[in-house]
Design a protein around this nucleic acid. Structure first.
Lengths: 401, 401
DNA sequence: TTGTACGCGTTATCAA
DNA sequence: TTGATAACGCGTACAA
């Protein structure tokens, strides 16, 4: 039988949970809590125990608050006890539990980044840029990729929410038409910065590339090189990047007095499978285009490969321009003319923006949207005219919008 | 003045912390705790309050444990209260706090993956494979990339440790020579699976590609194509992949009676900058090699680009073979001959292995090391002989080691 | 079937 | 300078 150490009572003893593997009791008579060692449980419960501040405190016979203060360099602490605690922490290989810390502070010092794909270096490069800035400020980065699937994207946002990220950088999948899973963040006052694949229905803080000007320059460049029947293999219509690149294409044609022919515009879905099919459609037309402006580089490369297999010469029979300057672009054939996006800068700019938003307060002087410049890189796939052309035509553009 | 609601005493009132933004008091006389609304604090503290099970419980006048049971589909619960709780949860937009959950269960359902770089599609592809398997089993994946920096790698492992991942998939940076930051995981009984960039000093559970056989086949292929002075531009000597590919290179030469010449072997560091320098060194030799086996595709591409700029013809004057089958490989010139690595399979295999290890128990029947097959892909950069060659030479290889 | 109360590991507040 | 203890949100053993 169990006896209260204080009032010697036996009847009034109640079990009252476990404390560090030991059974805890409560004497109802004198309201006295006490624990009794329980060797059986000790072994079972002990599996994979991480040393905590309580362990350190018990070893040294001080309180856990003293340990906490010592570990955080609080000024009000005896240098000796402090030193002893730090040594003991080293000895027991203490590692702070971020989970408990985050729970009590309700801040995780973590931001999530959600990207639609990993197949090109585009998004990885953005991530590297963002990670650099965030790491410098002591934040961690959780990377999620949705594989261009709406469902995975929703699941990923839920996971980030459950892990209580302090902020989110997001670029959506091409399937995404419903934005409720992003609105949840706004409802929770968790700042979100959208980049690259954004929607105008959603959010206010964005980092994008000046797709319009990039596309405009690309098409104008084709016109200047003597191409007259220029097609556009575009992206999903719901994405702003598709809309903007299409707008640049149309405006460039109109500026130079060319008609906009619906049969020369196809909306793809950014996959290479579809790109190949649509490219085939273009090339098999009764009157095929003499140039194609593609929504991105993988699409452009599919076009080139297919055109070559059909015996067409690039750039003589067909001019091709891509978008993004993937690492392949410089190496395929005599090079793919493309619009270079400042990937690392996008990541850095988005990271800096989310940092400002997470600090809060100064939301007013944080710009709504940052627009970065794109740059036309001229290579062999479009250089039909012999006259000298500059290696790259810098597009002037401005920040802010 | 504050008066105890129970015994009407005033002197014996003590402050006793805050409860949900309200000041809490304790009457020492009657040991009665009570809270008083504190409108001032209410506004300040209320910023960004996530609804919890307590909120649901209070709204419905039930206990938090009842709410918890309802949300987890516990059988012992009244269907009506259960329905009411679920509806209220929906209404209040309840989102469980993963942090608190993990703290209680001391399992985060999260595994970390640490990769050295994001510049090629190699590691992103592995990540995609791993993510697929883990997501299916309800685990999340935290991705960390160390940018080939030892320091960042250590910092990343610390972050993963602090976030209490249940398991780790790791591929180390080329700078890494000290493995203490990985040993911490073993000490904590957190399973680790190393993949691709592994060290034989460390750990037992690995997923690697049969680099030796891949390299052997690549060099033998060059010999069969009539190349006689074959150089090797390798990777950092501390990495097993470098050692294995070098071993394959040497053994293939020896098998066919060629000498191993130290001047034809250079250890690079996997960066393109160094690759260019060393390639230049090879090509400027008094008696330059007539073929180069490169440790990876980016290196091989640097070699090709440089050789072309020097007026050399590929594959006539110089044969080149790479490793990995990056997406560029198929498109550069007449194609780069390379050894294809099963990236997605690596990720899947590593994920399945870590799942088994995390489930625990059956550690015995989990294989120590999984060795996946590599596959030689023959393209234009090495096909000097006219005789018919198969498009790909499948290397036979076996699992387990 | 439901409620009470404790523990997870940490920080913060107040008392000593 | 140190100690006690509430609080963060959730799961759960035990009591009712």
């Amino acid at each position: 039988m169990i006896q209260c150490p204080k009032c010697r009572q036996v009847e009034t003893i109640m079990k009252a949970g476990f404390v560090r593997g030991n059974q805890r009791f409560l004497c109802k008579e004198c309201t006295y809590y006490f624990t009794l060692p329980n060797p059986d449980h000790q072994k079972k419960k002990r599996k994979r125990h991480q040393t905590t501040i309580i362990d350190i405190a018990q070893e040294l016979g001080v309180s856990n608050s003293t340990v906490s203060r010592a570990l955080h360099g609080h000024p009000d602490i005896n240098p000796n006890t402090r030193k002893a605690i730090l040594e003991k922490a080293q000895e027991l290989d203490y590692q702070p539990n971020q989970l408990a810390h985050s729970l009590v502070k309700s801040r995780t010092e973590t931001v999530g980044i959600l990207v639609p794909e990993f197949m090109t270096q585009f998004f990885p490069n953005i991530i590297v840029g963002a990670q650099k800035v965030l790491t410098q400020e002591g934040y961690h980065l959780i990377i999620m990729q949705s594989d261009e699937s709406y469902e995975t994207e929703v699941s990923n946002t839920k996971a980030l929410l459950a892990n209580r990220v302090d902020g989110l950088l997001a670029s959506m999948s091409h399937e995404t038409n419903n934005y409720d899973h992003f609105r949840v963040f706004e409802k929770r006052d968790i700042p979100v910065v959208y980049f690259n694949r954004v929607s105008d229905e959603l959010g206010s803080h964005k980092v994008v590339v000046n797709d319009y000007r990039g596309a405009f320059a690309a098409v104008e460049h084709l016109i200047e090189n003597g191409y007259r029947r220029i097609a556009h293999l575009g992206g999903p219509p719901n994405l702003l990047i598709s809309q903007e690149r299409l707008r640049g294409y149309c405006d460039a044609l109109q500026k130079h007095g060319f008609p906009i022919l619906p049969e020369l515009i196809i909306h793809g879905d950014l996959t290479v499978q579809k790109a190949r099919i649509y490219a085939g459609h273009f090339l098999d037309m009764a009157v095929p285009p003499d140039a194609i402006f593609a929504v991105n580089d993988p699409t452009a490369i599919e076009i080139i490969v297919l055109a070559r297999s059909k015996g067409l010469h690039i750039p003589e029979d067909l001019g091709v321009v891509g978008f993004s300057d993937d690492s392949i672009a410089a190496h395929i054939g005599t090079g793919l003319t493309t619009v270079k996006q400042p990937t690392t800068h996008i990541g850095e700019a988005a990271a800096r923006m989310i940092l400002r938003l997470m600090e809060g307060e100064d939301e007013l002087d944080t710009p709504e949207t940052i627009v970065l410049d794109a740059q036309l890189i001229v290579r062999g796939s479009s250089a039909r005219v012999k006259e000298q052309l500059p290696e790259s035509l810098k597009l002037s553009g401005s920040s802010g919008s």
